[in-house]
Simulated scan of single mutants.
Amino acid sequence: MIKRLAFGGLFILSCTFASAQQLARVQEKGLVGFINKDGSFQITPQFKNAQDQSEGKIAVYDGSRWGFVDKDANYIIQPQYVNAKSFSQGMAMVKSASGWLYIDSLGQELKSISSKRVYEFNDGVAFYRDATNLVGLINNKQEVVLPPTYDVIRPFKDGYAKVAKNKKWGVIDNQGKEVVAPNYDDIGDFNVGLVWAKKQNNWFLVSGQKEIALPGISKIENIENPDFVLVQQGNKIGFMASDGKWVIPATYDDARNFQEGLAPVKLNGKWGYIDTTGKMVIPTAYQDALSFSPEGLAAVKDSKWGFIDKNAKVIIPFQYEITAALTFKKQEKGFIDGLARVKLNGKWGFIDTKGNLLGNKWFDNAELFQN
Rank of each mutant, 00 (worst) to 15 (best):
S54H: 01
R129W: 12
I138R: 00
K71M: 13
F156H: 00
Q89C: 12
D123Y: 02
I76E: 10
A126T: 05
F47C: 14
N74K: 15
L101Y: 14
I138E: 00
L110K: 05
T149H: 01
V60P: 12
V94R: 05
M93D: 05
K48F: 15
I153K: 00
S88H: 07
K116C: 06
V94T: 07
K141C: 15
Y160T: 03
W66F: 15
G124F: 06
K111H: 10
E120G: 08
G124V: 07
L106T: 12
Q53S: 03
S98P: 00
I153V: 13
V60H: 12
D151Q: 06
I77T: 05
P155D: 02
K48Q: 14
V60R: 10
I138P: 04
Q80R: 14
G107Q: 08
Y75L: 13
R154H: 15
D130W: 11
K95S: 01
R129D: 11
I103N: 02
V144H: 01
N49M: 07
D62S: 03
A84G: 04
Y75G: 13
V152D: 05
V94L: 10
D70R: 08
W100F: 06
S115F: 03
K116P: 00
S115W: 03
L110A: 04
Y75M: 11
V125L: 04
M93S: 06
Y119T: 06
Y160G: 01
A59H: 08
G90M: 05
I77Q: 10
D158Q: 13
N139K: 04
Q53F: 08
V144P: 03
E109I: 09
F47G: 14
D158I: 06
Y61G: 09
A59G: 13
A92R: 11
Y81D: 05
P147V: 06
R65G: 02
S96R: 13
F41D: 07
G107A: 15
N83Q: 10
S86P: 09
D130A: 10
D62C: 04
A59C: 06
N139C: 08
I103F: 07
M91A: 09
W100D: 07
S115A: 11
Q53R: 02
I76R: 11
F41L: 08
L146T: 08
G124T: 06
I113N: 01
F121L: 14
Y150T: 01
D62I: 08
D104F: 06
V125A: 04
D72Q: 14
F47V: 12
G107H: 06
K111R: 13
S98K: 10
I153L: 02
F87W: 10
I138G: 01
Y102M: 03
L146I: 07
E109H: 08
S86A: 15
I138K: 01
Q46K: 11
T149L: 01
G159L: 03
A84H: 03
Q142Y: 05
L101W: 05
N122T: 04
I153F: 00
V125M: 03
Y128E: 02
M91I: 15
G159R: 01
I103P: 00
V60D: 08
A73I: 10
L101I: 15
M91P: 00
T44H: 15
K48W: 11
N83F: 13
A131I: 15
V94I: 14
Q51V: 10
K95P: 00
D104W: 04
K85S: 09
